[in-house]
């Protein structure tokens, strides 16, 4: 079981978009390590030829018909927004290009 370093915690936080304070990295590292050590126990089980189970229902092919339904009122959805402009959600400048 690999030890979780401060740097790894920082990287996880970056991926998960959490601006963790520097001062808390060590504490998180310690806690995550204990948890990861414990969950690593799944590795002890032999799972050769076992199909992963992603849900319990066994359902397949659940579709809806291609018909339109009434949308929400725009006022209602924009009311909860932190900022709006011109009937759109206003967000701060974006650095990453997609």
């Amino acid at each position: 079981m690999s030890r979780i370093t401060r740097e790894e915690v920082a990287k996880l936080a970056e991926l998960a978009r959490l601006d963790l304070p520097e001062s808390e990295l060590d504490e998180y590292a310690k806690q995550l390590e204990i948890i990861l050590e414990s969950v690593a126990k799944v590795g002890e089980v032999s799972t050769k030829d076992v199909k992963p189970m992603s849900h319990a229902t066994g359902l397949v092919n659940v579709f809806r018909e291609d018909v339109t339904k009434e949308s929400l009122s725009r006022d209602e959805i924009l009311r909860s927004a932190p900022a709006t402009e011109d009937d759109r959600f206003r967000v701060p400048r974006i650095l990453d290009e997609e």
């Binding site: 809806r64 339109t68 339904k69 949308s71 009937d87």
Partner: peptide
């Protein structure tokens, strides 16, 4: 060019007013 979106019943029509074709799922 389906009538409704992939995972909800909102219309896909091009050129509608902003945020008029939205619901809890596609938002």
């Amino acid at each position: 060019s389906t009538n409704s979106k992939m995972f909800c019943g909102c219309s896909t029509e091009f050129g509608a007013d902003p945020n008029k074709q939205t619901c809890p799922t596609c938002l």
